[in-house]
Amino acid sequence: MSLARTLDQLRATMLGRPTGLLAYQAVLETLDHGFAEQVLPVGAPMPAFVLPNAEGRLIRSDVLLARGPLVLTFFRGDWCPYCRATLDALEAALPGIERAGGSLLAVTPDTGGRTLATKRAQRLHYEIAADVDHALGLQFGVLFRLPEPYRAGLAANGIDLTERQGHGGWLVPAPATFLIDPAGIVRWRHVPADPTRRAEPADVVAALAALAA
């Protein structure tokens, strides 16, 4: 099943509740004002980074790029069911990404060992790193502030982003996906205007194959 179909089913369940629908619409409205234009465009150099990975090592962008093209995807955290589904779909696509010479990195603003917990709970075999204080999200232009109805929904479900992130801004990255070539240039990107929609892993693999060709 495609990731899009899995996400469609999830959306049908989540948005069946009136509060869920309201929160969702508030997010769409937030992202409806030229958000994608602010995001790092194709052709731009990716900002270099150092991030702590799930295993407690500092990973460097130059070291990752020395191995080949990099697929970098932002996710909000393991509290987000769409993110969990996407991480699973990327795990299924990992052999294809690696066959095409690429490596995969998923980045979340969650801290406190949640990257490792996610990796273990979902049996993921790619790099997951913590974007502490949103340093990378800001440089990629993917950050936005969750609107009030959404914040209320999270609070009602006991999800405290301030505690998870160690940052009280209610900021999350739009779940954008980037393909970076070994020279550090963005060659392909997927920036959803709706955070419940994600790059289809098959499209990521195809973009990677096109880059290698």
Partner: peptide, 10 residues
């Protein structure tokens, strides 16, 4: 680096 590593881990 210290702050990032300390905050990222459990």
């Amino acid at each position: 680096g210290f702050v990032k590593l300390a905050r990222a881990r459990a």
